[in-house]
Design a protein around this nucleic acid. Structure first.
Lengths: 191, 191
DNA sequence: TGAATTTCTTAAAGTAGTTCAATTTTTAGT
DNA sequence: ACTAAAAATTGAACTACTTTAAGAAATTCA
């Protein structure tokens, strides 16, 4: 289990024995029950969460009291309100498990020690954020360039298992559509 | 002029004399004429561009042959197709000056040297990308949570000078709206 | 300065998706 | 196994914006 995160990081940067040991010592692991929260709006984000197994979702509450899912956290992905974590400000986000999940946690109080003792860790996170940022620009681009229906199809093609697994209303929220519309799209596809 | 980028970086990480000198030696400066390109689709992104003065825009071509602006580069901001730069793949983006601009450039061939000789530079870019990523998630959130008209008003409130300065059709593109709709919004506001 | 080009404005028609609401199906819990 | 709750389906009415198109205004360029 711990090997998962070390192995993942090791794909980006070389880690010597001492550095690996330090990570093993400092990183916490938690099992989160379905619907369990790692972050709630109004609280400061306490750490960075790496999904080992299961699935998390990050969402905000809209004015009309409904939830807007901003991103999912699949295995191998990080999820966190980075601004809240870095600045110690209350978050507007919720981070919740959509199913029983296991996460590796770098607590806020531990991260600077890790960065100073493992300098290449900054490089790892720079690469991670660079990719995440690029992906989010692509997401914005798709939002403006193709229809909601096409975005659904593209997403279903890229993540077929995920689309099968999560509730339709969550998928709709994440894509900025309504569950009713997803039903219409899916009914069309069956003809 | 060179002092601008060094000063900016110095707000995030400490740089010693040798490191500052190295940056001065390796970073290039270019004056870009209005409408001049720094990147064109089909080409590999050759460097990271930091806007000293002026304004850049990053856009893709839609299927219908129109342009979709994904982001602007204002003074103090970085702009680049990071995936193209890191992987050496042809970009789908264009980066163009909307007015005469001055940019500081970290060429692709120079960046690894800088990262290895100035380890904290990775930290600087990690922080930059973390902020950019957080801002892009906020942008996605706004896209789904409030109307296009409200997004226009919020943007105009946050960047009043910018909104005055750039052509309406570019602003519309960036916000995922039409120029006609911006005209309607602005006409409403005058009553 | 004048002409060409670009940008903006305006209005009407159109549309991609939403809202609302009721019913059906599926899931969860005891 | 049964019930309650949650999720999905369906269809009709609605709407936030887009598309189309023409004319006016502003900008650019030689």
């Amino acid at each position: 289990m711990q090997k998962d995160l070390l192995h993942h990081i090791g794909k980006f940067i070389p880690l010597n024995e001492a550095e690996q040991q330090l990570l093993v010592d400092r990183i916490r692991y938690e099992k989160i029950p379905k619907k369990g929260f790692l972050l709630q709006a109004g609280k400061v984000c306490s750490g960075r969460f790496f999904v080992i197994s299961g699935c998390l979702r990050q969402y905000v509450m809209k004015e009309n009291e409904s939830e807007q899912i901003i991103q999912f956290g699949l295995p191998g992905w990080w999820i966190c309100d980075h601004r809240s974590l870095e600045n110690g400000e209350p978050s507007e986000y919720y981070v919740q498990a959509t199913e029983v999940s296991e996460v590796a946690i770098i607590d806020a109080g531990v991260q600077e020690e890790l960065f100073s003792k493992i300098p290449l860790l900054e490089r790892y996170f720079r690469l991670i954020f660079q990719r995440a940022y690029d992906a989010s620009l692509t997401r914005i681009s798709l939002e403006y360039c193709i229809s909601g229906e096409e975005r659904y199809h593209q997403f279903a093609k890229n993540f077929p298992d995920f689309v099968q697994k999560i509730p339709q209303y969550m998928l709709a929220s994440f894509l900025g559509l309504t569950p009713e519309f997803i039903s219409i799209i899916r009914a069309k596809k069956k003809r």
